[in-house]
Nucleic acid binder design. Structure first.
Lengths: 355, 355
DNA sequence: AGTCTCAATGTCAACGTAGACATTACGAAT
DNA sequence: ATTCGTAATGTCTACGTTGACATTGAGACT
């Protein structure tokens, strides 16, 4: 059904106008037409003063007629190869979470006249360095990244050269860099404590692969809270999705089929939450459920989540980059974004009666 | 709860290494160290042959020790200011739909050594031209855009200069440009015909604002199918969300409260679908429901949708851009991406018994 | 009238790279 | 031994821009 149609407008005219790739006008071209030097044109374009009204008008007219457009490449080269682009490097482009982060970044950067280049590593640690090097060759002014590779040490040299690096969602390894993260440990622990207060003891933890660091933190928080309640071995209820292994959805079905099934589930991230929802179908009352990350329709489905603003992650990271570009010096910062538990029902279920 | 912590590693050492923004090594620097001319270094870097193994090794060693990195700005300037970046301009960055499109674009571009700059216009028609001009100043090689402004005529000059422009999701206005769109009209008509065959007559159409073109097409398809079935006036059941007016969710509640409520609903896009879901709560059996655009959990909720692959939209658009960059000439093309109705239950409901 | 000030404009060079072209030198072919 | 081919390397320049500095001229002040 995918098809191609050609639109009507006179093809020959089109070809003619397309086949003359008139190269772009330069300052000198404009100057020639206006009868002034290229430097004067430059002054007009930059609005740097000391140009008579008369000349100014002539130059602007000439520029318009030639469709002059300042060449940022040359400009940047002239100024020491400093561009106004910042790169954001993501592993998995299809995760809506990162898109919201990207939106926050883009907006904040735009407020400061910077542009965002988006690059993906397809969650392939090996391609991370390649992609980063390529971006540095483009002379991006700073790097925002969700670290994927086991080690970001390869950026040490670049850091010394003054390129700000800000890591998002998890800190860099082997690299002194700023980072903006979530308080995963404490947030998860607190959620689990709530379940414990409600009487739950058999609490499961499900998560999909992806972010090692965040998931470890969340797992730590989960275990910590259970330990506080005297539950020392939670391993039967921990289901960490591994590549090739069962999916979050399958893990949940598996948990439900246990002889002593959990009475509550914590989902480690939005993917895992979706798995839980799929596995539970319409039977949300079978157990208590709290997901990390808010997700679309969670409100409609009455699912309690540990929420935060992904755009805020991006915004803060971008602000940090901008501060560094403005000569903020000092030790690396780790900014923690606030999370909060949103009660929507699923997390407040009491321990089922049959306990 | 948002906090800032400082990491440990020795601050003084950090400051020392940060405060020397050693400027980057150039070809000439490397040549000096290796005892050859900058041109020879250039040859090594470009791997353009005619360099003795011996020299080559020396140069590579020097380059490594100086952390040499080729300057793409200078390179691009040298080659007529042709970069390897392509811009993708979106209105609303928070719509997950566009993110999936962006993912498709990014991947396809990357396969051809191109990078994607993502820019947002915040759905503000006025800012579209500003953003675009800015990007052109950066010498992006091509533009991919979801048109927001009423008119893209301002790009005509640029098109004549040979910059490919490909519009996504809706065609450009006042500009001869390629576009990649969905078969919205036919797909919607077909979905409605299905409902009609199942006996429905009072079929509502709900959509949120956003894309004027697509929504008009879908509305046209909806009306067309109804007209075929002899329903000439569908206006009582058309709920087009306008800024400031009722949301999709409210519109649905309103529809359900009618004395003769619709027996089926078509949602014009994913936003509208979510509104419908929220309004219906758990009562999906109250009426038949088909949404345009697939969305997360639609499968789990058993909601029938008109689906397609957003990444495919992006991929095809990127392919078109690449073809144009490779001197594909000829009239503008309009590529239509296939859609298909996914039956999940909600669209197959018979007319409620009380009819 | 002579000197000074400063606005208006121009000239020159350099940012880092790579094509065009020049030069060198060494082994091969005559 | 001389010529030739060519691999290896170098020199020069332009890409478009803008800072640093130079020049011009007209009005202000003594």
């Amino acid at each position: 059904m995918t098809s191609q149609t050609e639109l009507q407008p006179a093809p020959e005219r089109l070809q003619v106008t397309t086949l003359q790739p008139q190269s772009r006008a330069t300052l000198a071209d404009v100057g020639r037409l206006a009868g002034v030097s290229s430097k004067t044109v430059s002054r007009v374009v930059l609005d740097s003063g000391n140009v008579s009204k008369d000349t100014r008008d002539k130059v602007l007219a000439a520029a318009r007629s030639l469709r002059f457009r300042p060449n940022h490449l040359a400009r940047n080269l002239r100024h020491g190869s400093v561009t106004n682009t910042v790169a954001f490097i993501i592993g998995d482009l299809t995760n809506p979470f990162y898109f919201l982060v990207a939106a926050g970044i883009e907006r904040e950067l735009a407020r400061h006249g910077l542009m965002m280049i988006l690059a993906a590593t397809d969650d392939d640690p090996a391609s991370e360095e390649r992609v980063v090097q390529n971006l540095l060759d483009q002379r991006v002014r700073a790097l925002l990244m969700v670290p994927i590779a086991a080690d970001q040490g390869y950026l040490e040299g670049e850091r010394q050269l003054g390129t700000p690096v800000v890591c998002i969602d998890r800190p860099a390894r082997n690299l002194i860099a700023d980072s903006v993260v979530l308080g995963s440990f404490e947030a998860t622990a607190e959620a689990v404590r709530g379940l414990i207060r409600a009487g739950h003891r058999r609490i499961a933890f499900v998560c999909s692969p992806a972010a090692l660091y965040t998931h470890q933190e969340r797992l730590r928080g989960y275990r910590q809270a259970l330990r506080e309640a005297g539950v020392l071995d939670s391993s039967p209820w921990e289901r960490l999705e591994n590549p090739g292994g069962p999916t979050a959805e399958e893990s949940v079905r598996d948990l439900l089929a246990m002889s002593e099934p959990p009475t509550a589930i914590i989902a480690g991230n939005n993917h895992a939450s979706l798995g839980v929802v799929r596995a539970l179908g319409n039977h949300f009352d079978r157990l208590a459920f709290i997901g990390f990350d808010d997700f679309e329709l969670a409100d409609a489905l009455g699912i309690s989540v540990i929420a935060y603003d992904p755009a805020e992650l991006g915004r803060r990271a971008a602000q940090l980059v901008i501060a560094r570009l403005n000569d903020l010096i000092g030790p690396p910062q780790q900014i923690e974004i606030a999370t909060h538990l949103i009660h929507r029902g699923s997390g407040e279920l009491l321990v089922p009666r049959d306990q």
